[in-house]
Write a protein that binds this DNA or RNA. Structure first.
Lengths: 191, 191
DNA sequence: GTCTATACCTGGATAGAC
DNA sequence: GTCTATCCAGGTATAGAC
């Protein structure tokens, strides 16, 4: 891995663990095993490095989600696969975390990937839910966009709950809860 | 308002806006219109002041929630009132935000109020849902604890989505979505 | 490309005068 | 109780040698 890559990876880790404000160039350099001059040779500064890190993170997140979404199966099966996917729950969401960083949200360049990421995720889930509704799998009265927002919110909020009580239990419960509610909606249509 | 109170209120605002790491004693003093010496006369330092601010915030949050929870009405009505309550959505949750602050979560004293806050909220909602199940309002198969976690997660995640796209729309959609799913569950029991 | 030196600002806190 | 002076570490970046 090149020095530039190591710097990006270190930044990704630190943004995840400590956020933008809590991440110093010095900490990035130490974790990457790179010197001061090396970092400023490859990147213009902290915001530039953060942009590279954030871009890489959102790409990975999207690819990971798309794996579940494009798998074979019904809408509920694919959403279940997405929700039950293995996650580092106690570390939280590396993208959602950025929404709490005022310096990230205040910079349009840093903010854009975060914004696009969640917009894409909601749209994609709404599309899958709409498919399920068209095919008769889900109740015709189901609001695809609202339900999609609920699903994404449950994941993001599940992370918050898990971190609050330092246990994955509430995350798993929140997922179980929304899947039960959604499945009930599906069986109504079937019955 | 006393100087100590102004310092606490300023700290509450700044913790909400910028988090613990992003909040400096100097910024607190300036917002409170207090001097350096004044702050260190009333409080031992930043962690001490943060504890006072966090304690006050979680008390307010709990009181606000309890207002909706203890109002007359069915379980779903009270939960709807809670979820539809007016919120400063784009500012996010002042308590949930703290879960993203590693320095807060690493300090047991600062962490405890956050942890208790979410534990209480989940328990309280689970109790209300269990009541609704006992009374026949809700499906007997409904898992009260899981559903409670889902409800809390939707609120917390709704904040994340709203901040991500800088719009209250996804927050409102997420609430609408979970209430639709829950209401469908209720009508199953009634039908 | 990477290193060291340097610079300036802020964070967080203490000391002692008033 | 509040003020000012002072302190040291760290954040963030530039300059220039190698």
């Amino acid at each position: 891995m090149s020095t530039a890559d190591r710097l990006i990876e270190s930044t990704r880790e630190l943004l995840w663990e400590r956020g933008y404000t809590g991440t110093s160039p010095k900490a990035i350099q130490q974790r990457a095993g790179a010197g001061q001059g090396s970092m400023y040779h490859h990147f213009a500064g902290k915001p530039d490095l953060a942009l590279a890190a954030i871009s890489r993170t959102v790409e990975e997140m999207r690819a990971a989600a798309e794996t579940q979404f494009s798998a074979p199966g019904t809408a509920v099966e694919r959403i279940t696969a997405y929700l039950r996917r293995e996650r580092e729950v106690l570390k939280g969401c590396p993208v959602g975390r950025l929404t709490q960083d005022p310096d990230v949200m205040a910079d349009p360049t840093l903010r854009a990937p975060v914004e696009e990421s969640f917009a894409w995720l909601c749209d994609r889930l709404a599309g899958i839910l709409a498919e399920g509704r068209e095919s008769g799998e889900l109740d015709a009265a189901l609001d695809a966009r609202a339900t999609a927002a609920t699903v994404v919110a449950v994941v993001q909020g599940g992370y918050v709950l898990a971190r609050a009580v330092d246990s994955v239990a509430p995350f798993d419960q929140a997922i179980t809860g929304v899947l039960s509610l959604l499945s009930a909606h599906a069986s109504t249509a079937r019955g």
